[in-house]
């Protein structure tokens, strides 16, 4: 371990070789078969492969099944309020560029109660990985319609079927100002899940990843078909995209070449309704980053602060002029 790490830069530990066990804590209490388990393991793997120092890593969540995520990580965690993971995570990162920040949020959390923060977090484009656990239903509160539930979903709040078309989180995110990274993956393809979160972690800005997630308890059928029939998954392929080994590509029935720098094509693909586009829809590494603005003057010493404060007080002094 380096004796001193400057606040401004993230210096990986030199005498440490972090293993999976360094990123885990406790036993995850999601239902058997829940997509959360595979996402947790994948995030831990990415942390290990990036050799993130656990003490320099913060996982921020909201409320819902996904909200429990930080409790199972061996890093710092913040299990906050429903819908408010983005503001907290942004505050963590703003003056601490040395921290690796993950945001874990669900479809109700992100696309309903916290929708305002989602819109603005995309615009802030602070370097962090945002994982949307989208299972199309409220699980923790036992089966209420979510903003991403398909039209006609039978739930406890819409026993005769939901009446509004769902929000498409990918389409929405791609329409937001200053969007810099949008990817989509599924919880049940670990190779693609890993490659996506890894790519997201390497992105210089806010990497928004929608994870199509199964909920065996309340939405068994939502992705049932898709999960068993790979033809429904459309792999977006490109040299600058999320790349899989040839063998892993075989899991996908359809493959489309898509250049992730093309936002118009990305928006088109986001609206595909006869399958789920999987991969990197859009990436732009040149966008303005609010965390860079936030960190532009950190670390001023006490002496300098005091001196500048005194000269500011001079302006209010009754004895500074005639």
């Amino acid at each position: 371990m380096l004796v001193q790490t400057h606040e401004l830069c993230s210096v990986p530990s030199l005498d440490h070789d972090y293993g999976m066990e360094d990123y885990g804590k406790g036993v995850a209490r999601w239902c058997p078969g829940c997509g959360g388990h595979s996402i947790l393991t994948t995030v831990q793997r990415v942390c290990k492969d990036m050799q993130y120092e656990p003490e320099k890593t913060v996982v921020v969540s909201g409320i819902g099944c996904s909200g429990r995520f930080p409790h199972y990580m061996g890093t710092y965690g913040f299990h906050g309020l429903h819908g408010r993971a983005f503001p907290v995570a942004s505050g963590v990162k703003f003056r601490r560029p040395d921290l690796n920040v993950f945001v874990v949020t669900g479809d109700g959390d992100c696309c309903s109660i916290g929708a305002a923060h989602w819109v603005h977090a995309i615009r802030y484009n602070m370097k962090m990985v945002a994982l949307l656990f989208d299972n199309g239903i409220y699980g923790l509160t036992k089966k209420q319609t979510s903003p991403t539930s398909p039209l006609g979903t039978h739930s406890n709040t819409h026993p005769r079927g939901s009446v509004l078309p769902p929000i498409n989180p990918i389409q929405t995110t791609l329409g937001l100002a200053n969007v810099s990274f949008v990817a989509q993956t599924v919880d049940w393809n670990s190779a693609h899940l890993y490659a996506t979160i890894r790519k997201a972690a390497e992105h210089p800005g806010l990497a928004f990843v929608r994870i199509v997630q199964r909920c065996p308890a309340f939405m068994r059928d939502l992705y049932g078909d898709i999960a068993v029939n790979p033809k429904n998954l459309i792999l977006l392929s490109h040299e600058n995209g999320i790349n899989l080994k040839p063998k892993a590509r075989q899991a996908f029935g359809r493959v489309i070449e898509h250049d992730p720098s093309n936002i118009h094509k990305a928006r088109e693909h986001a609206e595909i309704n006869n399958g789920i586009p999987i991969g990197l829809l859009y990436q732009n590494t040149d966008n303005a980053r609010y965390d860079e603005y936030g960190a532009h003057n950190i670390g001023m010493g006490v002496e300098e602060k005091k001196q500048n404060l005194e000269s500011l007080l001079d302006q209010y002094s009754t004895s500074n002029s005639v």
């Binding site: 503001p87 995570a89 505050g91 963590v92 703003f94 003056r95 921290l99």
Partner: peptide, 11 residues
């Protein structure tokens, strides 16, 4: 929320 995040992170 942002202020709480910053304070949690020691700022």
């Amino acid at each position: 929320g942002f202020a709480i995040g910053a304070s949690f992170a020691g700022k």
